[in-house]
């Protein structure tokens, strides 16, 4: 399980999560995700396209961060690539209607700072 980030200029933060967002995996990265998403950037892109597993607790962590970003006037979006399992989890819970998802980084970055 790993989480990393890159800042692109003053307005955008990109976060990449790798591994399994199951019960154990989420426990290990949820705090850092919240901290990273709390940075005063307009847009936050979270790349979950290489996740091997996205469980309800992982979805909760993503939503919580997205709500915090929105509460300070920013926007958090997801990069899902062609990861069918991740897309299925987000669609099954209806979270795909609340958290914008994009196949590519470029689309996601544009949407995050629009």
């Amino acid at each position: 399980m790993s989480i990393s980030h890159t800042d692109v200029g003053d307005n955008l933060r990109k976060i990449v999560i790798l591994g399994r967002l199951d019960l154990e995996g989420t426990k290990s990265v949820a705090g850092e995700l919240e901290t990273l998403a709390a940075a005063p950037k307009k847009g936050v892109v979270v790349d979950v396209s290489s996740l091997k597993f996205l469980a309800s607790l992982g979805i909760r962590a993503l939503l919580k961060s997205a709500q915090a970003v929105a509460a300070r006037g920013g926007r958090m979006v997801l990069v899902v690539g062609t990861n069918a399992q991740v897309v299925m989890s987000l669609e099954a819970t209806g979270v795909s209607n609340l958290l914008p998802m994009f196949e590519s980084n470029a689309e996601a970055e544009r949407a995050a700072v629009a």
């Binding site: 309800s56 939503l63 709500q67 609340l98």
Partner: peptide, 18 residues
Amino acid sequence: APARTLAEAPLGGWGLPL
């Protein structure tokens, strides 16, 4: 019920739909 906005989305209850 499905949340209409991000702000009103509950932080739980996602296991059953999955």
